[in-house]
Design a protein around this nucleic acid. Structure first.
Lengths: 216, 216
DNA sequence: ACAAAAGTGTTGTTACTACACCCATGG
DNA sequence: CCATGGGTGTAGTAACAACACTTTTGT
C-alpha cells in the first residue's frame, strides 16, 4: 500500500515523501503508505493511511497504478505493494508531519526501495490522462483563470503549454466552462481574466478513441 | 492471481474460462489463475498457472490489469486478486483441459465472483491499446494479409474496420511492414494478397501524445 | 498614450475517414 | 471478359499548433 501523491506547488509538480527513520534505507525518502487491514478495500486503506499518517484528506482523485511484486524489491522481506496515484488541488496546504515533505519530481532525492520507479509510473499515468481526460480538475483549484490553469498543466506535463490552445481544447471537449465571473488584474494592470471551472470533478474520458473510432 | 486470456477464434474475440467444480459458484465459469508462491513475481506466477493448469504457453503479450480488493468479492473469505491481460495469437490452438474452454466475450455465460467486471476491464484495456500502440502483434499471427489483420482488429474492437485505412495507419506509424511475399487467392480467384508482419513483437506505444504534444 | 494581461481570428498541418477507382488472378 | 478479392488515389474533415491581432484594464 503506497501512494504517489502529486500536487502543483511553487509552479512545479511535487510528490509527497516521507523520510525513513529506520533501516533499511534509513535516511532515504519513501512514499507514504502502510499495511492493509483485513477486510479493508485497497482504496479505503490508502485513504486511511494518508489521513492518519500525513494528514492529507483533500485528495481530489485517486486511482490504482499497479502492484509491484519483485521479490528483490524489499531487502530481507518478501513484500508486495499496490500503489495508488493521488492528486491534490493547487492552493491546499495539508498539515503534514515534520518527517514528511513535498519534493519537485524533477529533483528527487535518493528514494528507498523501488519507489523512484513507482513515482515515474505515476507521472506517466498523469501525463497520459491529462491528454485524453478531464483529470486536470484534480490538480486545479475549484475555479481558476486560464493563466492559472496553463501553469498547472505546464507543471504537470513538464513543458510550456499555450493558454490559447489549452482553452480551446478544453472548451471544445466540454471539460471546462466559464463561470461568468472575472478576476482582478495584477498590480501593473491588464485585462481582468475570465474565471472558469471544470464542469465535473469526476474523471471522464473526453477523448476516448484517438484512433480507430467506431464508424459514424 | 487471475488471467484474462484473449484470442480471436472463429472471427470473434474469445476469453479462456474454466468451469468451477466446487462451491462457491459451482458450475459457473471463472477466470484461470491460482495462488502466488512465496518469492515469486506476479508475472511469473500467472505464467506458471497458465502453463500448468490450462497448458497455455503461447502468450504473446502479458500485462497487469489491476488488483481487485473488495472484501465482498469472495463470499466467505477475504481474497485479493491481481488480474493480468494475456493475448494469444490467431491460429494457435492450445491443448486446454476438458473443464476449460473459450467463450465469445459478447456471449459470456454467468461468471463467478467479480470475474465479469475483470473481463470487461481487460477488454477496455485491449481496445485502448489497439488504438495507440502496436499491441495487435499479440493477436495476429506471425505473418498475415491485410484482410486477415482487418478481421482480427474487427473482432477485438467489436466493429467493422476498413482494411484500406487500417493499412495506412499501421504503415505510417511503422507498426507493420510488407514481407515481399504474396499469398494465394481463394478458390474463386482474385488478386494475391501482400503478406505483412509487425516490425516488432514487443509492445511499443506508437501514438504517445494524442493531444498536448510537447512543442516542436 | 502606453504597458500589461487576457482573449479572438486566421492559417496551416496532420492524421485521419470515406469512397471511387484501378490491378491481378481464375474460370 | 467478367467475377472476385486486393490495392491505390484523392477529397473531405476534425482537431490541433502557431502566431498575429484585438480588447480591457492601470499608470
Amino acid at each position: 500500500m503506497l501512494a504517489v501523491v502529486f500536487q502543483v506547488r511553487k509552479r512545479v509538480l511535487q510528490v509527497l515523501l516521507w523520510e525513513r527513520a529506520r533501516e533499511p534505507f534509513r535516511g532515504a525518502w519513501s512514499l507514504p503508505g502502510g499495511a492493509l487491514e483485513p477486510g479493508e478495500t485497497l482504496e479505503a486503506s490508502i485513504l486511511r493511511h494518508l489521513a492518519t499518517k500525513v494528514d492529507v484528506r483533500e485528495v481530489a482523485h485517486l486511482e490504482q497504478l499497479a502492484t509491484w511484486s519483485d521479490p528483490e524489491r524489499h531487502p530481507g522481506r518478501w513484500e508486495l505493494a499496490t500503489a495508488y496515484l493521488g492528486l491534490v488541488p493547487l492552493g491546499i496546504d495539508p498539515d503534514v508531519p515534520a518527517d514528511t515533505c513535498w519534493h519537485p519530481v524533477d529533483e528527487l532525492p535518493p528514494l528507498a526501495f523501488d519507489h523512484r520507479e513507482i513515482v515515474e509510473a505515476g507521472r506517466e499515468r498523469l501525463r497520459g490522462k491529462l491528454s485524453y481526460s478531464n483529470i486536470g480538475f484534480a490538480l486545479a483549484p475549484e475555479t481558476f483563470t486560464l493563466a492559472e490553469l496553463t501553469a498547472v498543466y505546464g507543471a504537470a506535463l513538464g513543458y510550456e503549454v499555450s493558454a490559447t490552445n489549452l482553452k480551446r481544447v478544453l472548451l471544445r471537449r466540454g471539460a471546462i466552462e466559464a463561470t461568468g465571473e472575472r478576476r482582478a488584474h495584477g498590480p501593473a494592470g491588464g485585462r481582468p481574466a475570465e474565471v472558469f471551472r471544470f464542469r465535473t470533478r469526476r474523471l471522464e474520458v473526453t477523448d476516448p478513441f484517438a484512433v480507430f473510432r467506431p464508424p459514424h
